[in-house]
Design a protein around this nucleic acid. Sequence first.
DNA 1: GAACCCCTGGTT
DNA 2: AACCAGGGGTTC
Length: 273
Amino acid sequence: MPELPEVETIRRTLTSVLIGQEIQGVEVLLEKAVKPSPEQLIRALVGRKIVELRRRGKYLLLLLDDDSRVAFHLRMTGRLLFLPKLTPLEKHTTLVLNFTDDHSLRFVDPRKFGTVVLYWPSTPPEGLKKLGPEPLETEKAVVVSSLTTAAARRKGPVKGLLLDQRVIAGLGNIYTDETLFLAGIRPTRSVREITAAEWEKIYQSILTVLELAIEHRGTSRRDYVDGRGEPGNHQCYLQVYDRKKKPCLVCGSEIQYTRVAGRGTYYCPACQH
DNA sequence: GAACCCCTGGTT
DNA sequence: AACCAGGGGTTC
């Protein structure tokens, strides 16, 4: 579900209500989603206070007062909701953190792909450790260099490279399609054919697309809501994603739908080359 | 790299 | 009934 803009929106909506909260109890309802074991997790978390919320790629991180951290990855359908303890548990609730103030943080995930990991900064989980640069918070030269270095070493479509979290963190299926539309480049283009000028254009497009999506509080197609349960608005501003056979908003050509890098992919045959 | 898998639920 | 889905890890 959530890509960088959605996770960032969740972070922003949860920050003010979670900072300073003390964890009173932990309920693990889907054991395979959490690490370490539920018993160890409960022992480590009870009594801890939340001191900061961070985002890294598509991970949301809770920083605790003993320097330990909890990393949530929402995968396709995960939701993080701040709710009164009295609110009945939703179906497919994976984890509940109960606080000392009558509120709780619920991790709800119908498809059960989402994960929760407790760790210390010295030994981050693999997925987090291998992440590429953060597009909005890293200097341009570093991000562009990560893209071009990866491009020199691999084959295949440019879309696959942008989806690779080791190359750049945070882009998923929606925002790669939106980025490549804005950049005027077909998702099927081989990474080897992309020129230096085009990498620059792709980089600029990534910034524009992500910043606008964050302004609109993320894209809600089916499952996504922020930490308060509110949907985003960016679905109203998508340029190509989910517009199969509809007219291109720029030139009127019919938007094409195909499969690239294993994912459903939308592009304009006239605007993108 | 592509293909399959982890799951449930919505759409065709 | 079949296919699709904001992800990504493991296999080929």
